[in-house]
Amino acid sequence: MAKEYAVDFPELEPLGDDMFLNAERRCPVILLLDTSASMADNIDAVNDGLQLLRNDLMQDSLASQRVEIALMTFGPVRLIQDFVTVDRWLPPRLYASGGTPMGAALETALQQIQIRKRAYREAGISYYRPWIWLVTDGAPTDKWHPAAERVQTEVLRGGIEMFTIGTDNADTSILSAISRPRPPVRLREAKYREMFVWLSQSLKPVSRAEFGASLDLPEPVGWGDIQA
């Protein structure tokens, strides 16, 4: 059970071309998406949303060279796509199946972020605080407490920015425990497309002044409600 998830990508990588050809400061973002079977009806909206995210970020040339997206799905936990800067990104296609092992997913995400940060340091590339963007439509089916604690340690240390977005069936109290002090957002009526546009808009300031120090994000108008 403990070893149910696996990382399929080798940890050791040769010095990548992406870090040499593009020395911009990076903003790594892990999209941690629940693709359990209950998501089947919405999976197309999520896939569309990924395309929107890419297309919108491509409008900002500097942001497209700074933001790096990785995709993880849980049910079971898989790294679906490793970090790629948006200007070279082809969003993958997600399919729905399986359970909701959120704890394992978070652990793996933290691990992936460590690996990526080490790669940045190796290449002498500076980076912003990495984002984890968790979207779920249910309650975890595994032990999530240890993972939530580890996430909280990282958040308090200033190591990551944690965002949680839940749909109707999601357990808000659990999400809140993970993303503290940032409250979880409840997604309205499966507005995944709008959610991804909002994500893009929130990432674009990476190319402008005053990004990173204190994130001053817009209200999730039109697609979600903050769960205080």
Partner: peptide
């Protein structure tokens, strides 16, 4: 010359999210 770079780029994309039209996830799994 750039085979290693290409390979490492391709390795970033898991087969589980391959866009193969109507054939679906079971085949991929």
């Amino acid at each position: 010359k750039y085979r290693p770079q290409l390979e490492s780029f391709l390795r970033k994309y898991s087969l589980l999210a391959a866009d193969i039209g109507p054939y679906g996830r079971e085949k991929l799994s």
